[in-house]
Design a protein around this nucleic acid. Sequence first.
DNA 1: ATGTAAAATGCAAAAAACAGCAAGATAAAT
DNA 2: ATTTATCTTGCTGTTTTTTGCATTTTACAT
Lengths: 249, 249
Amino acid sequence: MLKEERQQTILSEVELHNRILLTDIAETLDVSIDTIRRDVKELDLNKKLRKVHGGAISLGFTTNSARNQNIYAVDQKRVIAQKAAAMLKDGAVVFIDGGTTCLELAQLIPENLDLTCFTISLAVAMELSNKPNVTVIMIGGQIAKESQIAIGANTIHNLAEIRVDFSFIGTGYVDAMFGLTEFDWDIVQIKKAVIKASKKTVLLSISEKLNSQHRYKTCDINTINTMITELDPNNDLLSAFKNNDIKIL
Amino acid sequence: MLKEERQQTILSEVELHNRILLTDIAETLDVSIDTIRRDVKELDLNKKLRKVHGGAISLGFTTNSARNQNIYAVDQKRVIAQKAAAMLKDGAVVFIDGGTTCLELAQLIPENLDLTCFTISLAVAMELSNKPNVTVIMIGGQIAKESQIAIGANTIHNLAEIRVDFSFIGTGYVDAMFGLTEFDWDIVQIKKAVIKASKKTVLLSISEKLNSQHRYKTCDINTINTMITELDPNNDLLSAFKNNDIKIL
DNA sequence: ATGTAAAATGCAAAAAACAGCAAGATAAAT
DNA sequence: ATTTATCTTGCTGTTTTTTGCATTTTACAT
């Protein structure tokens, strides 16, 4: 029996049953277990299947069930979150927005830091409630399904009654000329209320969003006090923002 | 059975039911509890699920919730939740409390049901936001770390401004004589506000809590309109409650 | 505080993987 | 035809992985 032929048989067996045992195949094809081992190793190398201890598994079988809830550009967002976390001091009163970058920030808050955090995001609130020294206040309101943040009149009303040292916000789009913009009108209202409630506003945005714009405007770029991207502050991409009165980290 | 195969099975079980018990899985797959323990440990390490005492929970369910670690008496709680879910009609405006039983209820709400749900629980809010036809309103306030629910004056203030058809509440302790009691003063204040805001109050409680009491009183037993346990309504344990004007399910 | 369930730990047997070697087959070059 | 190099295959002994069991430690609920 040819090697090629044998490997083809192995493959179709894997496709058929989603998984195989090396011992089974060795017996069926009447060759030594080592040969099968080597075949499977090769097929694995060629990404035709996945070799596991004692057998092999079809690629399709493995990928579908594992629901990858991977966040886009996690690494960049983590860098941003680290820079932002460095701004936090004991006793500060801050607001943390929804969005994956802000969630990273919430995760990166040191255990020993004494903070009061307001948020409109269910996920951020949950994350923060794991930090023993952080007082978490969830701003209520109707929950937007996709983003799991509180929106609407009631939320804005509640936001009007607070005053924080820093707010860390994200944005859909940001441009040196057009400022911060969003796809969604409701979100803009929320962000406006947040900015109004903050002494200083810190924008967290991955560089990919720079020089992009959309329909509804949140604020001018110089409303932002500090802007954090994953880039080095001296990066050329950020030069357009330097004319303004913005601190870039 | 291959190890990988087994782990895939564990994962899909977790995704399906949001939570599993190690002993159940061990029996189903016919391997020792140690093996399952090691598998789950490994999957946890690989961030595929979250290992908790006695079982595992899905990551997608809720990232980090102290409440969800408690998978105590899930089956009973699911029975209760099913009975409660049967009470829900299209167009209803309801309040759903925190606590595992209420969380079960939130999960069991049918996809096609049109509802407006108020809640003080982050986990319930998250769960409900997966239901396309449910309008979710999170009542804001300071978040209690252990239970991840909003508490405090602001929450009570917000509760004072709503009026719901039904509220589904849990309780720490319940007794036919002493009524509903709690270990925690703040929680009592919240529950009082909830009851005040409801036309009808539905108590969800596992039978284990019957005939138990604690320091602070929420309300008398006849303040409750409907009481749901996992038991058959004719069970002897419930006879003490039948004298009152309570519907028992 | 207490009893029970779960987790961690160490251990041993079995299975599988691995590395290295030698026999046989194949193909190309001399 | 012989040699040489390469590839394939099976075998051997060793190492690693996996698994279940017994025991201790820890965590949990009451």
